[in-house]
Write a protein that binds this DNA or RNA. Structure first.
Lengths: 154, 154
DNA sequence: GTATCTGCAAATGGTTTGCACGCTA
DNA sequence: TAGCGTGCAAACCATTTGCAGATAC
């Protein structure tokens, strides 16, 4: 499940099974998504795809990402003040941790919101379908930068 | 704390103390925010403000909302695929419950994420500043609509 | 009196879409 | 070879911004 190649094969299989075609552009996008731990944006996926396959447009990245999202093979983390970020490794909802300085996003290491989900459903009468939990903070590297002001942010 | 007039006075006082001017437009926006339980969008605030004070522009609503947000007097709930929603009654982060059908947003009725915040901070080394938790589901009214297909969504 | 606020209209920027061409299966 | 997928450029749309005139204090 954590091995990029296994995850890539899985995604490829699901696409094929659903009757979708496998173009080189799509393969390149899938491959990036299967490898990335760092929750890349569409733009970042685009840049990396172009390194190995320059014949790719940003629109195609968006279309592929949209397709995977619809199929439930990709978790989209939308931010109203920044571009969306994508998790292709673990597409079911789980808590994330966002650095407000450098916008690095990592998995939080805590899970299991199910108890709460049940409680909220019971209390409110809503049928709960999904959730989204983000923690915002300063990552260790940015904390270091803040205490050594001579270092550049770049 | 729950009384709209008390909350309005509180917001007005904070604005004055910070040296900001009290225009009729601002008062109208503050008043809507102090009353609203339903987490209105900027557009919705604008529409309601115009009822009692037609000399108001959407830009002014956005500017007022931005000012209050900066002062920590307003909680902004951003959604990448929809307009932002605002909570002026309880501006500190707390879990919300979003109906994916009608986009109604209510408070979840559960709180206390502090234990998790500490755990995540310890595990990752991030200095946690804030969090955001949303549950997505179908509200009771929309569930009813779904089971009685003859009723219109309007 | 003057710095702040307002309203208008134009700019912004990530994402989506329409369409003609190209390529997978 | 039949459509699905791609690339380009234009459209979208909530939000922001610049600026000239208005107004709270």
């Amino acid at each position: 499940m954590t091995d990029p190649n296994t995850r890539l094969d899985e995604m490829v299989g699901r696409l094929k099974d659903a009757g979708h075609r496998l173009t080189p552009q799509r393969m390149a996008v899938l491959s990036i998504l299967a490898q990335s731990q760092e929750h890349p944006s569409a733009e970042q996926i685009y840049e990396r795809v172009r390194i190995e396959f320059p014949m790719t447009s940003l629109a195609t990245v968006y279309k592929t990402v949209g397709l995977l999202k619809e199929m439930g093979e990709l978790l989209e983390l939308g931010f109203s003040d920044d571009s969306n970020r994508y998790d292709g490794r673990l597409p079911s909802p789980h808590p994330h941790l966002v650095c407000v300085e450098c916008r690095k996003i990592i998995d939080s290491g805590v899970y299991a919101l199910d108890t709460w989900t049940d409680e909220v459903g019971l209390k409110t009468g809503y049928r709960i379908l999904s959730h989204r939990l983000d923690f915002f903070g300063i990552c260790p590297l940015c904390q270091q930068r803040a205490s050594s002001p001579l270092l550049d942010k770049s």
